[in-house]
Design a protein around this nucleic acid. Sequence first.
DNA 1: GACAACATACCAACCAGTCGGTATGTAGAT
DNA 2: ATCTACATACCGACTGGTTGGTATGTTGTC
Lengths: 210, 210
Amino acid sequence: MTATHSSSPPARTPRGSARAKLIAAAHQEVRRQGYAATTVDQICAAAGVTKGAFFHHFESKEALAVAAAEAWTERARPMFDMLPHTKLEDPLDRLLGHIDFRFSLLHGPVDGFTCFIGTMVQDAYATSESIRLACEASIAAYCEALAPDIEAAMDAYGAPDGMTALDLARHIQSVLQGGFVLAKTTNDPAIARESVAHLTRYVRMIFGRT
Amino acid sequence: MTATHSSSPPARTPRGSARAKLIAAAHQEVRRQGYAATTVDQICAAAGVTKGAFFHHFESKEALAVAAAEAWTERARPMFDMLPHTKLEDPLDRLLGHIDFRFSLLHGPVDGFTCFIGTMVQDAYATSESIRLACEASIAAYCEALAPDIEAAMDAYGAPDGMTALDLARHIQSVLQGGFVLAKTTNDPAIARESVAHLTRYVRMIFGRT
DNA sequence: GACAACATACCAACCAGTCGGTATGTAGAT
DNA sequence: ATCTACATACCGACTGGTTGGTATGTTGTC
């Protein structure tokens, strides 16, 4: 190994990156096939590491799933403070901007926009309580991040009796998750876009914005 | 074997019932764990038959899944012509009655009301085209069964520009599927009921029924 | 040189599917 | 009516490949 410092180094991926790559690979594979159908070997192959690395960083497949759920929550955070629409003055504009943003993601291949959490919880909720709880926390975090703008919109424009901000946030999440499921049946995002369009109309009607 | 003709017979399940029992077992098991996580042995055990019977009636696990999807569609049919609300005169009443009925199912343990189709398509759409198509057909059948009442309500009460009956039917299905996913995260149907309540409000607002 | 970050080789359990066989029904000839 | 010939329904041990996980070796870094 004389030429270590010049010419092309072995192009090995940097040491210490295996954990993050495994989580990214888990997101990708589980979104496509669900949790149970995704094997540890598949995740390792997609991440470009070996099984040794996998079990060095994670106690089990289940532990990776929990870590991946937490990472997914973090990944979603920029949606709530880094995007242009979050800077708008009117809270209803911010809310509608968020829904529009989610709408705009619904293009291209289905595995490109589906939700890791929603996919995983479907076939793991009954078999792994720790995975279920991680998914519950992730969804709750999303809804709580969405709630303040809804709350402010309710203050500014009023809202139907008995409706709460968290309520509506969960409904928004519900429509998105349902859209993902339907898009998987048709293998096409159009059906999900339709549904989100209904959601937009509903939100506008609630707050009286024609 | 002297007492063959009297006392308790071996109580064997009737010949010819294995196929139906396997499909029912598949519904139950797949709804709880998803398609990939459910093993053939599990389905056989739940159905009370052996593997021999399984592969006598179905060419493969995949073939059973397709047959079970078709059976699920049939199982849903009575929702559209046997229930009291389907006899109402006003099409909007029939539509709202249907949604109320779906709402009323959202009680008790999660595996009691979730959708076999929605659960299965999540972890099989990318790996089995035949299963995906069977799920697509089942969802389409549901939406088409729902569409006539929506169409009639649109004729009677008017509807927003650009909205179609099939559109709204798919949105209803979307909210239900999303509700199932969220209910799995919390292991509680309350979150799904909330979402369907929003759906009811939306439908009423669209057709101007306060 | 010690420790973290990997890689390689391996294993026991499990899985979908097979196969040889049995039990039960049924149609036709006699 | 009964016997033969055949079909359908079902059984359960077995198999080849796969799976999550382990035990042990190697390499880079401080």
